[in-house]
């Protein structure tokens, strides 16, 4: 029996085989989508870049060389140099760490909070629902970047505070999605069945409702990654995110914009990096949507 047959078996012999088989089926669907594979490639490349930054970078990201400032791309400086003579390629490479850090922290906090609030609200209904959803409405009523700006200026500029601000402003849509999903699930027979077994609301929400909400949420989060990167870059651009000399891509664009007409590479190359990574996450999200669609 080959590994493939074992994975695709109709009669799994154990819990782990059933789970692995399911994952493998999803993987087969995913690999069938070429664009999604491109997206996965970009995201994996971003992770490798962040992990192996010291090996990939040709210079230290903070090393200044004022004699060499604002040089165009060349063999020595692949992406050229900025106004302090720092190597832009190395700064972009190290900047991937910051981007990944922001994206991961936001992805681990906002969707989890939104998922809990949304499922509790949708499952319990009544007053709980009203109170939680009105709080959500308050957050939804502000434009995301404006609210993030307000939080960052209150907390003080810095990358951690930017992450907190982005997380605080991005959970409400997740709560809404999770609530809507929960409301379609909560009256189904399999929820009635587990209620009739005497399960507590906590058990039902955690074990039965959340697993069905996560797939649409994962898709939404991947599609939002681009937005998160852009918000972080926007905060960096306004000087409220990562502080100099950190090589955050948005901050790099911000300083490069003064030289945009004569030394286009200073602002453009970090911009292309943001564009490629956002595109990668969007393509990945599209592919995941096909795999995780609960209707399949």
């Amino acid at each position: 029996m080959t590994a493939r047959e074992w994975l695709l078996s109709d009669t799994p012999q154990s819990r782990s085989q059933a789970r692995m088989g399911r994952l493998y089926g999803g993987w087969l669907t995913f690999t069938g989508n070429r664009l999604a594979m491109v997206g996965l490639g970009i995201v994996v490349a971003l992770m490798l870049m962040a992990l192996l930054a010291p090996l990939i970078a040709t210079h230290h990201p903070f090393a200044q060389d004022l004699a060499n400032r604002l040089q165009p791309p060349s063999a020595a400086n692949w992406f050229g140099t900025d106004q302090y003579g720092r190597d832009i390629w190395s700064r972009v490479v190290y900047g991937s760490r910051l981007t990944l850090y922001i994206v991961l922290l936001v992805a681990l906090t906002a969707p989890v909070a939104g998922l809990l609030i949304g499922t509790i609200s949708g499952y319990l209904g009544g007053w709980t629902d009203i109170v939680l959803m009105r709080i959500t409405d308050v957050f939804l009523a502000f434009p995301k970047l404006i609210l993030a700006l307000a939080f960052v200026s209150a907390l003080g500029p810095g990358i951690e505070n930017a992450v907190i601000a982005i997380a605080i402003t991005s959970w409400p849509p997740y709560a809404r999605i999770a609530r809507a999903e929960t409301m379609t699930i909560r009256n189904s027979d399999f929820i009635s069945a587990v209620r009739l077994q005497g399960a507590s609301p906590t058990r039902i929400i955690l074990g039965h409702v959340i697993p069905l909400c996560t797939s649409s949420l994962i898709v939404r989060v991947t599609l939002d990654m681009a937005g998160i990167i852009l918000t972080a870059a926007g905060l960096g651009f306004l000087g409220l995110g990562a502080q100099p000399p950190l090589p955050e891509w948005g901050a790099m664009i911000s300083t490069g914009r003064q030289y945009l007409l004569d030394q286009w590479w200073v602002a453009t190359l970090p911009g292309i990096a943001i564009f490629v990574v956002s595109l990668g996450f969007n393509l990945l999200g599209d592919g995941l949507r096909d795999v995780l669609d609960p209707k399949n």
């Binding site: 799994p12 059933a18 399999f190 069945a193 587990v194 009739l196």
Partner: peptide, 22 residues
């Protein structure tokens, strides 16, 4: 609930789609 259980009409809707029989 231990003494009184129910079987539903639609077997396509009464089993959790993401849970194994186990």
């Amino acid at each position: 609930y231990k003494r009184c259980q129910m079987v539903f009409q639609d077997p396509y809707g009464s089993l959790h789609p993401r849970h194994t029989v186990d």
